Simulated scan of single mutants.
Amino acid sequence: MEREKWTNSINQDRKTSLLAWEKETGIELVQINGQRRYGGPPPGWVGDPPPADTEVYIGKLPQDLYEDVLIPLFQSVGKLYEFRLMMTFSGLNRGFAYAKYSNHRGARDAIAALNHYPVRQGCAIVVCWSTQKRELSVDGLAASVSQQELEATLQRATQGILSVTLHASPHQRQAKLAVLKYSSHQAAALAKKALMEGNLRLRGSEMRVEWLHPDLKQKLQLWEERPPASQVQENKRLAVPKPLALSPAVQNMLDHLNTLCGRQCLGMPLFLTKCIRVSPHGWLQFWFQVQIPGYPVPFSGFTWVRQDGQGQSRHEEAKAAVALHMLRVLGEPLGPSWHRELLCRSHN
């Protein structure tokens, strides 16, 4: 593995300090595939790697902050198995990193001690449990791409592909969206890099490759569960159901929560909802979970909602009710109209 060359004209003083620290401590950092890594395993490690629940995500890093500061900081709360800093080709970091500890307690202590820790004046970092993402969305594939063709291409060019599903693109007409599931986060990350660099030569224009967003995953599942609106008799193909537009009231609540989280530098909230019960009076009970990147643990609970009279998606109604509750939890002052909306839309 070769170390990627840095652009010497950018941030030279900090790079010089890092090289001096490497020489003084004897620590070896290896940069490959857009990340620079220490350990995995570290020197002297004996035995199997630690389990998945020992890794933390580190966000909101100043881009000129490096391992000479970060590794000693995260070693101060527990024994590190691995530290990975995401890098740009210019030699700046990409604003986030992952620290894996030798046991669960080390990761837990890192979150307790270092979440919102000020690494510099006015620069507080985020430390929370790492989510091992394994699914990608590839939007903008040519409408003529078949699942068999796509699977064959991915099996030749990537490792660890478990499943491929094709859908009509929700964003581009006459295009397809693929959901790719891999055996590990590392396999998915390498596939994402190859796709973004155009190495797989998939047919399509304006392709967009991203980690599969929970909201998109939920919408795709809803479309699959909803019966087709019509059937085209000429060629027996079923029409693809279209997603429902959000009502203004629902969109207003979600926008309000997104704005509040942005103002408090918490990151975009991610919703998961699941309908678990229907009452005889037309109310539906939902389990929900809301992950806010700036918080170390997700919020979860239960709420009752009624289905919108205009045919609004039940899951969107649940998200609206949860958004109102989250605004209250985050200390946002709500006027009388918001409280009336909350009482009208949901009850606990």
Rank of each mutant, 00 (worst) to 15 (best):
M253A: 15
A178Y: 06
L180Q: 10
I125P: 01
R328S: 11
A239T: 13
T165Q: 12
R108S: 11
A99E: 02
T165K: 09
K242M: 12
E28S: 14
H281N: 10
E317S: 11
I32E: 14
S130W: 10
T131P: 00
Y81S: 07
Y66M: 00
H171Q: 10
N235R: 11
E135D: 09
R277G: 04
I276K: 04
G59H: 04
K193T: 08
D139A: 05
G282H: 08
Y66L: 06
G267Q: 02
W304C: 00
V164L: 03
R340G: 02
M86D: 02
G294S: 02
G106C: 07
V164Q: 12
G40Y: 03
S17D: 12
L330V: 07
E210D: 14
K274W: 07
V278W: 06
Y98W: 10
Q218T: 12
S102D: 10
K100I: 06
T54C: 15
V278K: 08
V240N: 09
V322K: 00
M207K: 01
T7Y: 13
W6T: 03
N33L: 12
A168C: 12
M207Q: 09
R277W: 15
V46M: 14
R237N: 11
Q307I: 04
P41F: 09
E206S: 11
P241L: 04
V329W: 12
K242Y: 08
G140K: 04
E28L: 10
L162W: 04
S169P: 03
N33C: 12
K23E: 15
Q264S: 08
F271L: 06
G267S: 05
S300H: 05
Y57C: 03
G39I: 02
